[in-house]
Design a binder for these strands. Structure first.
Lengths: 217, 217
DNA sequence: ACGCAGATGTAAGGAAAATGTAAGCCAATG
DNA sequence: CATTGGCTTACATTTTCCTTACATCTGCGT
């Protein structure tokens, strides 16, 4: 089933990756950052809806089309309420599937040209290069803004020092003491973004890097 | 919610009137002829989109910013297709709201070329090429006036040195020492526009450029 | 055409802000 | 309790902006 779908969709011009378990799926979602996820609810071990719940909890921006044989109204409602964007019950026609995929991707692309990025009460205006929290303007320097924006664009994902060195500092190699530069700049950014507020958005992931997100339960 | 918005927006310097029903809203739109309508889709009786449809049907020239908790992609697309100019889902940051309002009003105001531009107590007459502050005429040279006018046309927005070089000095490239020319001219303009007064309208945004605006909190 | 005055452009130096560097400390981990 | 990674502080360097003085240009009256 999975193999047939992949070859069919690839023939139709989509770029497809398949996962055969919930764990592999999670890994791919995090690394590839796909535009859309076809989620089969009848997974081997884990409940498909749990997968969806976790994805939504992490705040990943991802269209999800649920694919299942449980085609009752209850399942439909529960799936959509959990955060799915569309629902398709088996058996389905391949044409209908591609039509729905196209519809979802079209909407996805329409909502893209957003000038703003928002994480909790933090709002970033990429056009005027200003940021504010709690309706209060933040006074950031050029590099501080670049750093915050990069973290915001990767919100919910841990960004490594390597990524920061490459994408924010544009350093090809990392044998320079760029490591400490990042730490210092991060501290300066925190002083302005997090220190004056109750909820801390800028968290450290020891051994990996940093992440910008709303604190979880 | 409505009351909080009104007081917040009035504090931010907008002239605001609130309606608590679709009918009252129609009445106000017809009598006050506002520049912009903040439309909450979750109205008591009538569907907010119907209101929008009717306004568009009557051909009233009015920016409409939809405000709603239905923040799904479908609603977004439908709202924009019905004729809204912008869309903001709850919960939203107040800063983002004002930024979007400003963007819409700017587009609106840009479309009708006016003879006068005012920023605070500064008033510029584009026709006679004169400017005054606090009812006192400013004695500006040709280039000083061009510079001030350009900043005024982009008030509230940061203008870069690149923009100034291109649009005020009409220099195609910027490898000339135009950079310093801008600085010097800016200093001369400041001496006349800002130095004799208490509130400074001409601010520099380090690393980006300059901005003409009333000082904020 | 000439010279004057105001306007504009150029260059150099200095001040302040931003950014980078280094060293020591602290906290987590095994 | 040692090791590693991260944080903090103080200081050095770089960048950006402002200022000043002077050079050149332009328009205008004679």
């Amino acid at each position: 089933m999975s193999a047939a779908l992949v070859s069919g969709l690839e023939a139709a011009g989509y770029e497809v990756s398949a996962a055969n378990s919930a764990e592999e799926g999670f890994f791919l979602v995090h690394t590839l950052r796909p535009d859309l996820l076809l989620l089969d609810l009848t997974l081997p071990q884990r409940n498909g809806l749990d997968v969806l719940r976790q994805i939504r909890k992490e705040g990943i921006d991802l269209r999800v089309l649920i694919l299942t044989s449980h085609n009752t109204v209850e399942d439909r409602v529960e799936g959509l309420r959990t955060g799915a964007d569309d629902y398709l019950g088996k058996p389905f026609s391949f044409t209908e599937l591609t039509a729905r995929i196209d519809a979802l991707l079209r909407r996805f692309l329409m909502s893209l040209p957003s000038q703003f990025v928002t994480i909790g009460d933090l709002s970033i205006d990429t056009k005027s290069r200003t940021a504010s929290r709690n309706s209060g303007q933040l006074d950031l320097t050029a590099r501080e803004f670049d750093l915050l924006l990069y973290l915001a664009e990767n919100r919910g994902r841990t960004v490594s020092r390597e990524m920061l060195a490459k994408d924010v500092w544009h350093e090809n190699s990392r044998f320079t003491p760029i490591n400490n530069v990042i730490d210092v700049q991060m501290a300066r950014l925190r002083k302005k973004v997090d220190d004056p507020f109750e909820v801390k958005l800028l968290q450290t992931v020891r051994g990996l890097g940093f992440i910008l997100r709303e604190p979880q339960s």
